[in-house]
Design a protein around this nucleic acid. Structure first.
Lengths: 320, 320
DNA sequence: CTGAAAGCGCTTACAG
DNA sequence: CTGAAAGCGCTTACAG
C-alpha cells in the first residue's frame, strides 16, 4: 500500500533559516509572518527581505499541528457516477472556501468497508469534521470519533446506528407531487422503478401511497425497466438518474411509451426522447446546507442532531 | 475568512498517555504501533492493552510532519459542472488509494486567481504533488513549488508558461474521425460549435482541417447554437458537452436537424433527440494515467515532462 | 530488548 | 520591542 520512495526535495527554507539570515530570533520571524504587532518597521523589513531572498513559505501543516486543529474537512461520497454528487461537492466547497478550510475527498463505490477505511484515515489525520454520503452499511465505527469531537453530517441518506445531522431532498413530498400530477393527467396504473430496498425507495414509496390515498389506483413496483412493457402501466416514477436512463432506453422504440417521471434533474433532461418530467431539487443547496451545519457544529452549535429536508419541485414536460 | 472558534474536543490520548499507562517508554509504544521488531510479546500485550483502554489512534498528521512528507496529493478542477471531471477524479482516486495517499480537492470555476490561491494553499500544506485541470490563466506561480519538489501533472489542457506533464484526450484525432465520418455520410458543409479561442477549439479545428484536406468542403465556425439554422450546415461538431446540449436544444424542433457530433460522451447520449454521435474518450483513464505519472515522478522518475494523449473513438448513431 | 534525548516546523507562554 | 525555552505528537538516531 505505501510503496513511496523518500524523495530528496530541494530543501525548503524554514523560519529558522529566515531568522538566521535576518539576524533575528525565530519568534520575531513568526511575529512578522503572522502580522503580530510590536515589531520595528526596520526589523520587519529585514525579515521580509530574508523571506523574499529565501523564497520562504510557512509550512501550514506544522502550524496546524501546533495549533491543535487541521482546518480540514473530509467529504466522502458513495459514487462519482451519480451526477448530483459533484454538485453537492460544489455546494460544500463554497462554504469551505469562505471559512478557510481545505477539503479531503474520497469515494467508496458504495462499499461499507471502503467508507470506514476512508473515514478513519481522515480522522487519523485529525480532520475537524466529515460530510458523508453514506453507504448502506452500519456507522457505529464513527461513534468514538464523534465522541472525540469530529463533526459528522450525512447527506442524501441517513446513516444507520449513529445519531447525527442529515441533509436530504424531500423525497416523500417529491413523490407525492409526481403521483398527483400523473393522476391529474389520467394515469391510473403507475409503475415505480427502483431498488426494492433502501432509504430512497422507502421514502418515495411512502410518498406515492400518500398521494394515491384511497383513489383505488394502483402502484406497481418494478426492479427492472425490462418489466415496463409487461407491467401494463401508463406511467412510471424512477428512483434515480440511473433508473430514469433505463426507463428511457426501454421506452425508446415503444409505440406508446409510458409517461416517465425521474427523481432528480439532469443535464440533458430537456432533450431526451421520449420526454421526461423530473422531480428536481438543488444538490448545490444540499451541499451548502450540510457544510454550513457542520461549520456551525465546529463553532459551538450544541443543539440536538437535525434532519433538514431540501424542497423538491416537479418540472413537468409534455410528450414531444 | 478564518472565523472558527477553538472547540474543546474531548482530549485525544497520545502515545505519551499510552506509554505511561502501560508503564513503558514512548519509544516502545511507537515500536508496537509501527510493528517494529524486538519487543517482547509480553510488553506488546501491555501496550496493546493500554491502546485499547484509552482508545488511542495515532495522529497521522504528527507522524507525517516528522517524516517530512504528507502522503497527500491535491486535485484542482476547473468546474464540477463538466460531467467528465468527476470521472477523472474517480480515475485519480483508484491510483491514490492503491498508493496510500489522501487527496485534497478543490474547484476554481475557471478563475485563475482561485486556482492560484487553491494551489498555493495546498502547497503550503506541503502536498507531495498536484493534479490540475487548468484555467486558461498563466501558471508561472507554480515554478517555485515545482522547483521545491512538488510534482505537477496537468489534465485535459496544457498549462501556460510552465513546463510540466500533461494528459489529455487525442482531440485532433477525434475531430479527424468525426469529420471523416460526416464526409462519408455526404455532408459537405459542416459547422464547428465551440469557443472561438482556447486549447480545445484549436486542436479540434486543426483536426477538422486535416480531415477536410483538399476536399473543398467547408467548415463554418459558430460561437452560438442560435446561428445553427442560418449557417446552412447539414452537420455540426460540438466542442464540449455544453455545446452539444445547446445544439440539441436548438435543433429540437427543426424540420431537418443537422447531424450532431459531440466531443465527449455523456450519460444520456443514447436517448436524446435528435440523435447524436459522440467522439468518446475515457476520462477515468485520463485520471488514472495522470495519477500514475505523478506517483512515478514522486518516486524518482526524472525523465523530461511528457504529453500523453488518450485515444478517442467515434460512436456513430443514426437518426432515430 | 528498552529507553532518554533531540528534532520535524511551527506557536505558546514567559522573560527581559 | 525582542528572544530563549518548552511543547504540539510523533520519529530518528543513539545508548545501554
Amino acid at each position: 500500500m505505501s510503496d513511496q520512495v523518500q524523495v530528496v526535495h530541494a530543501a525548503r527554507p524554514t523560519m529558522k533559516d529566515v531568522a538566521s539570515r535576518a539576524g533575528v530570533a525565530l519568534k520575531t520571524v513568526s511575529r512578522v509572518v503572522n502580522g503580530e504587532p510590536g515589531v520595528t518597521p526596520e526589523t520587519t523589513k529585514r525579515v521580509l527581505g530574508a523571506i523574499a531572498d529565501l523564497g520562504f513559505r510557512r509550512n501550514e501543516s506544522a502550524r496546524l499541528l501546533r495549533t491543535g486543529r487541521t482546518a480540514t474537512l473530509g467529504f466522502i461520497v458513495d459514487s462519482w457516477r451519480e451526477g448530483e454528487n459533484a454538485a453537492v461537492y460544489h455546494g460544500i466547497e463554497i462554504v469551505v472556501r469562505e471559512h478557510g478550510y481545505l477539503l479531503y475527498a474520497g469515494s467508496t463505490d458504495a462499499e461499507p468497508e471502503l467508507e470506514e477505511r476512508l473515514a478513519l484515515t481522515m480522522c487519523a489525520r485529525r480532520v475537524d469534521g466529515l460530510i458523508i454520503i453514506p453507504t448502506p452499511g452500519p456507522h457505529e465505527y464513527l461513534r468514538a470519533e464523534i465522541q472525540a469531537g469530529v463533526g459528522c453530517v450525512f447527506v442524501m441518506r441517513p446513516p444507520s446506528l449513529v445519531r447525527a445531522d442529515v441533509v436530504l431532498p424531500d423525497e416523500r413530498g417529491g413523490a407525492r407531487a409526481a403521483i398527483t400530477h400523473l393522476i391529474e393527467h389520467g394515469h391510473q396504473r403507475i409503475g415505480f422503478l427502483g431498488p426494492p430496498a433502501g432509504h430512497r425507495s422507502a421514502e418515495l414509496l411512502a410518498g406515492c401511497r400518500e398521494a394515491l390515498g384511497s383513489s383505488g389506483y394502483s402502484l406497481v413496483e418494478l426492479d427492472s425497466a425490462a418489466d415496463l412493457a409487461s407491467a401494463d402501466v401508463t406511467a412510471v416514477l424512477c428512483a434515480s438518474q440511473e433508473m430514469t436512463r433505463e426507463a428511457l432506453r426501454a421506452s425508446a422504440d415503444a409505440a406508446a411509451p409510458p409517461a416517465i417521471v425521474g427523481f432528480g434533474d439532469f443535464d440533458f433532461a430537456d432533450v431526451v426522447s421520449p420526454s421526461v418530467s423530473v422531480v428536481a431539487y438543488d444538490p448545490v443547496l444540499i451541499g451548502r446546507t450540510a457544510a454550513e451545519l457542520l461549520v456551525g457544529r465546529l463553532t459551538g452549535d450544541r443543539t440536538p442532531p437535525r434532519r433538514i429536508e431540501v424542497p423538491t419541485r416537479l418540472i413537468a414536460r409534455l410528450p414531444r
